[in-house]
Structure formats: structure tokens, C-alpha cells
Amino acid sequence: MGHILQLPQTKEIGQPYLEDKGEASRNLSAKVSIDTELFLRKTFEQDVDAGISLLFRQYYTMLCSHAVRFVSSKAIAEDIVSDIFYEFQVNKRYLTTTTSFRAYLFTMVRNRAFDHVRSEMQHTTSLDKADLIPAHRTHSPDSITQYEELYHDVENAINAMPLKRRQIYVMHRFEGKKYQEIADELHLSLRTIEAHQYQAMRQIQSILKAKWLTILGIIGLFWN
């Protein structure tokens, strides 16, 4: 029922705006993006190295920005994206990819990031062992919106933290600062920082687990 109702609604509200400026900008952006993809393909045909460097300039930053929404760590996000570019070149994915490179790269990044969140939830203390988590994909969500759902939940979980804890969490996790650096910067003891960080991890995990455990893997139950 809701589904049917929703359709006319979006049309009614969305259409007037789309008609004049939305439609025009869409066409324009579509043209630009098609050109970019076409240009990338052509470059790869001629010179793979040039194609890769173009690919980096085009997509690397936005992919990292996307991945960090899931994993909330700059370093892990960059690692995930770098690995995917690496595999893209080594496994010659530019020859076999049927979708746009953009769709391929985003899909890969989202899968890896999703997997990463899952493995972190399974191994409570695995933050420092993040590089040991196998890169293979075992289980990916069956609908595209589950990815957004997950990173929104991650974001909300971080936002729900007490302010000091959130500050410490972001400094450590997102920016990759050492506990000692944070302690110096905030004039707090090392123990306090560690306790806050531990509490932050527990909080995020308990929030995510309540909703995601069945999708992210039942095995988590046995691990903790």
C-alpha cells in the first residue's frame, strides 16, 4: 500500500522542480559522467598506467570519503580503497568490467567496508589487528540500501556518545592519533583516554549488534 502511495507523492512534489532545473542539471551531469567514463575506457585501452593515474585522480578521494563513513578510520578507508585499485590493475578488471568503473569501484568499496565492520564486530579487540582480517567477501547484503543503513547507524552511534568520549574517539579512530598525543592535547591522563576509547568501542558495538547481528554474521555470538 505504502509503496503505491509513495510513487505519486514523489512525482507531485519532485516534478515541478525537476521540470525546469533538475532535469537540465541531470542531463548535463549525465553527459559529463558518460564522458568521464568514456575517456577512462579509452585511456585504459591505450595505456594502463595512464588509465590508473586518471582513475586515482577521478575517484580515489571520493571513495575514501565514502569508505570512512563505514569504518570511521582514515587509514583503514585508504587501505581498503588502495587495495581495490591494486586488484583492479593486477587482475586486469578494466578488461572485464561491464558496468561503469565508477559503479564497480563503489560496489567493491562498499562491500569491503561492510565486511570490515562485520569482522570488527566479531572480534571485539581486533582494531589493532585490522590488517589480519581476510579481504575476501563472504556475505554481502541483498539490497543496496543496507549499505547506507549501516553507515548511518555507525554515524548515529558516534553521535550518540557523550561529547568528550566522541572527541577522543574521533581523534583516535578517525584521525589515527596515538593515545599519548590525545592525552597531551586534551590534558588528560593516558588511562582516561584508554577508558573512553574502550567505552566508545563497546557502545558502538552494542548499538550496531542489536540491529545488525543477523546480517553481519551470527558467528559474532560465539566470539564474545
Binding site: S53, V81, Y86
Partner: peptide, 13 residues
């Protein structure tokens, strides 16, 4: 969310 350095990443790659 943040601006990753694509040039550095390309060099590493």
C-alpha cells in the same frame, strides 16, 4: 568526510 591525498596514494600504488 575528508580529502584523501590521491597523488600520494597513486605513488604508493
Amino acid at each position: 568526510q575528508f580529502i584523501a591525498d590521491a597523488n600520494m596514494a597513486l605513488m604508493r600504488h
